[in-house]
Design a protein around this nucleic acid. Structure first.
Length: 254
DNA sequence: ATGCCTCAGCTCCTGAGA
C-alpha cells in the first residue's frame, strides 16, 4: 500500500500535474492541501477518469484539502471535531483499513502574531483529537503540510532562521507532542540525503540553490511502523513548468 | 526593512503564503 501527501498550491492550476503524478505513482491514497477552490469546483470527473475516487473539503481562495483514493474512503470527517474553525484544513477517512488524516496546518506568519496564536490553539485541538483517534484506530497515518520543522536538519539555514516561523521551539514542542501520542516520523526511519527538504520559496532561485525546509510530513502509528518499507520526497514534479512550491512525500507500507 | 515569486479575487493591486 502506498500513501502520499502533496501541497499543490491551487488544484485549478496543478490538476494536470497531479494527474500526471498519479499516473506515474499509482498510490492508494493521496492527501492534497491548498486546493484553493470551493466544493462545487472540485474536478471529480477528472479523478474518476483516472481511476480514482475523491473526498474533498474546500473553501474560497485559501486552504482546502482532499483525499484521492483508489478504493472507497469511509467514515469521512472534515476538520477537527470539537475545535471550531472557519478554515478548511483537515479531512480524514478510513482507506483499506488505515485511518488516514490529511491536514494543512496553519502557517502562523510570525511568532507573537494573532495567526501564530491561532496556530498554537489549532495544534492543541489537533493533538487532543488525534489522541482519541489513535485509541479508536490503532492503524493511523497523519500526513500533510505541517508547516513545522522537526529540528535543524530540516532547515537550510538553521542559524539565519533560528526561532523564525516553522522553526520555533514552541512549534517544535507541539510537533514532538504529536509524536509522543505514539506516532513516528516515517521519513527518518530511513537513511536520507543531507539537506532533504519538501518546500522551497518561489523567490531567489531557492529550489536551484536547495534553500528549503522539510515541513511536509508523514507520521505513522506504532501499529503501522513495522509495515513501513520506504518514505521519500519526490522532487520530480519540480521539473514542471509551473511547479508547486512543495514536493510530494510518498510512503510505502507492506 | 523590503523585494524577490505565485495564486485568487471585490483582478492592473492586495492579502497570504512560508
Amino acid at each position: 500500500m502506498q500513501l502520499a501527501t502533496w501541497n499543490i498550491n491551487s488544484l485549478t492550476v496543478r490538476l494536470p500535474q497531479v494527474l500526471d503524478w498519479l499516473a506515474a505513482n499509482p498510490v492508494d491514497a493521496l492527501a492534497l492541501q491548498e486546493i484553493k477552490m470551493t466544493d462545487d469546483k472540485f474536478p471529480l470527473q477528472a479523478f474518476a477518469d483516472a481511476g480514482y475516487q475523491a473526498q474533498w473539503f474546500g473553501q474560497k481562495t485559501y486552504n482546502g484539502v482532499a483525499l484521492i483514493t483508489r478504493e472507497s474512503a469511509t467514515d469521512v470527517v472534515k476538520n477537527i471535531p470539537g475545535f471550531s474553525d472557519d478554515m478548511a484544513r483537515v479531512i480524514s477517512a478510513t482507506v483499506q483499513g488505515v485511518r488516514v488524516i490529511g491536514a494543512y496546518f496553519p502557517n502562523g506568519q510570525e511568532p507573537g502574531s494573532d495567526k501564530f496564536d491561532y496556530k498554537m490553539n489549532w495544534l492543541k485541538g489537533l493533538r487532543d483529537w488525534v489522541r482519541a483517534e489513535l485509541a479508536q484506530h490503532p492503524r493511523l497515518v497523519l500526513m500533510g503540510d505541517f508547516n513545522i520543522t522537526f529540528d535543524d536538519a530540516d532547515v537550510w539555514d538553521p542559524v539565519g532562521l533560528h526561532e523564525s516561523i516553522h522553526c520555533t521551539e514552541e512549534e517544535r514542542y507541539h510537533l514532538r507532542a504529536l509524536i509522543a501520542l505514539g506516532l513516528v516520523d516515517a521519513f527518518r526511519l530511513f537513511p536520507q540525503a543531507e539537506k532533504s527538504y519538501s518546500w522551497w520559496d518561489y523567490r531567489e532561485f531557492a529550489f536551484r540553490r536547495n534553500r528549503g525546509l522539510r515541513i511536509d510530513h508523514i507520521l505513522v502509528s506504532q501499529a503501522l511502523q513495522p509495515l513501513v518499507q520506504a518514505c521519500v520526497i519526490d522532487k520530480s514534479p519540480r521539473k514542471n513548468e509551473r511547479p508547486s512550491d512543495h514536493a510530494p512525500v510518498l510512503l510505502t507500507l507492506a
